[in-house]
Each structure stands twice: as structure tokens, then as C-alpha cells.
């Protein structure tokens, strides 16, 4: 027995070489490997930026690991994504900054940002809010994950930033991106110009490149806000093209 307990002690020392024991949970090992390759200085900066944000104090208190958030979390029904783990990692990130970094690659992008977790947390944490902040940081630093995730999304991004409106009727003229909306949709796409012209709302009728008619001066204001508030700089961190194009569009306005 004595021999065995010595062995146990040795084993316990070996435990946690990365500061985090993963058990048999798939996905997490991959995160660990991923973090080993990461830049330690960047990891530390990410933690600092998160904690310095005005919202951090509102969104984070402490986590007792009860799982209430997760019990109501929608993406958790499909994906091994848990708001509980997000808060746990934020909690431990001060000592182990790689925990945040690991999450930023794929994990946080599973969040639906529905805030079901926030409403039920007995400690008043806001896991969804923390995820939103982490996404912002990922974009700002141009992490590979953010670039990869946002790339197919860049057209929408550009649209929102330059028109103040999002999916627009002209996107529906082609079926390429909407095949899963089926035959009904295909029919609608063919007639979309007429259908759109017949909408009995004056600010929308016939408008194809925006959701509604927007004044040029309004758009100028929006783009100025984006520039002044640092949105373009942040977006430029990940999607330089998009930021450049928005700036160009803003210039054309003048």
C-alpha cells in the first residue's frame, strides 16, 4: 500500500502539465494542442483586454459550476458548447491565459448569442456577453479563426457597414446561397423585382440594394461613426479588404 500511495503522489504531480486536465472529453484535447502552438504574449493580452472592458464587470462575477446556463442553452442541444465552460475558462484565465485563446478558435463561434444563459444564471453572469466580447477581441487581433469564420460573412458585413441594412433583395436574385430555401424560393427569386416593386410601402417599394430607402446623408453619418468608434480599425484586423472597401465607399460619399 505504501508503495502504491507513493506512486499515487508521483502521478498527482504529473497531473496538469498544462494546468488543465481534460479527462476524456473530445474537442478539448484538440484545444490543448492548439494552444501549445499559440503566442503566449498574445494570450496574455487577450485576457487583459477582456478584463479591462467596461462590460466585464457587469458580465462576469464568478461561477459555481452549477450548469443552469447550459441547461437552457440552445446550441448545447447540437454542439458540445457550454456557457458554463466559457465562464469557467474566463474565471481561470487570469492564471492560465491559454484557456481563453483555445476557445476563440472554434468554440465561441458556436454561440447563438440568444442570452438564455444570462437570464437564468444564479450568480448573474452573462456568458453570452462574454462570448460577444471574445469575438470582438478575436476580430481585432485578426486571429486565424476569426478570419476563417468571417470570410464567408464578409459580404453581409460590408452591406451592413455601408448601407445600414443587411440581407437585401438583390441577394435573392440568385439561388446560389439559398438552395436550401427550396423551390418556392426559386420561384420568388425569378419575380423578385416585380414582387418588390409591388410592396405597398413607399420606402421599400422597388428598393433592391438595401432593405429600405436610406438617405445618403444617413449613410455618411453611419460610416463616420464606424471610423470614429474604431470599428473599421477592428474589422481591418481580420478582414482588411472589407475595411478598405468601406473606407472607399465613405470617400465616394463626400
Amino acid at each position: 500500500m505504501v508503495g502504491a500511495s507513493k506512486k499515487v503522489a508521483r502521478m498527482l504531480q504529473r497531473l496538469n502539465p498544462d494546468g488543465w486536465h481534460y479527462g476524456g472529453l473530445p474537442g478539448l484535447q484538440w484545444e490543448a494542442e492548439n494552444a501549445r502552438e499559440g503566442d503566449r504574449a498574445l494570450m496574455g493580452r487577450i485576457v487583459d483586454e477582456l478584463r479591462e472592458d467596461v462590460r466585464f464587470e457587469e458580465f462576469y462575477h464568478a461561477c459555481i459550476n452549477c450548469g443552469n446556463c447550459t441547461s437552457m442553452c440552445p446550441p448545447f442541444r447540437l454542439v458540445d458548447f457550454e456557457p458554463r465552460i466559457v465562464v469557467q475558462k474566463v474565471m481561470h484565465a487570469k492564471d492560465e491565459p491559454e484557456l481563453l485563446y483555445q476557445m476563440m478558435d472554434q468554440y465561441i463561434w458556436a454561440c447563438f448569442q440568444c442570452y438564455s444563459c444570462w437570464e437564468v444564471c444564479p450568480a448573474h453572469n452573462n456568458p453570452g456577453g462574454l462570448v460577444a466580447m471574445l469575438k470582438e477581441i478575436a476580430v481585432r487581433h485578426g486571429l486565424q479563426s476569426a478570419r476563417k469564420t468571417l470570410e464567408p460573412y464578409s459580404k453581409i458585413l460590408y452591406k451592413v457597414m455601408t448601407t445600414g441594412t443587411q440581407i437585401t433583395p438583390d441577394m435573392h436574385t440568385s439561388m446560389a446561397l439559398f438552395k436550401d430555401w427550396g423551390p418556392h424560393k426559386a420561384e420568388l427569386s425569378k419575380n423578385i423585382r416585380t414582387e418588390r416593386a409591388a410592396v405597398p410601402v413607399e420606402t421599400m417599394a422597388g428598393v433592391m440594394d438595401k432593405s429600405w430607402r436610406v438617405d445618403d446623408s444617413t449613410m455618411k453619418e453611419l460610416m463616420e461613426i464606424e471610423e470614429e468608434a474604431g470599428v473599421l480599425d477592428a474589422v481591418g484586423g481580420s478582414l482588411k479588404d472589407v475595411a478598405d472597401m468601406v473606407r472607399e465607399a465613405a470617400k465616394e460619399m463626400e
Binding site: R55, Q113, A132, E136
Partner: peptide, 26 residues
């Protein structure tokens, strides 16, 4: 029904982290 109006742009906030509190508030 005003034409001097943009969306809230929070789509970018919640969807992709491509906005920030100052911009959204503005």
C-alpha cells in the same frame, strides 16, 4: 416612415464581433 434611418448594426455585434459598444451606442 423615415428614410433617415439605419439599422442598429447590432447584427455585426452579436454575429461576428465586428462592432463595439461605443459604435453601437452612437
Amino acid at each position: 416612415d423615415d428614410t433617415n434611418q439605419t439599422s442598429c448594426t447590432a447584427w455585426n455585434y452579436y454575429g461576428s464581433g465586428t462592432s463595439n459598444p461605443v459604435a453601437l451606442s452612437a
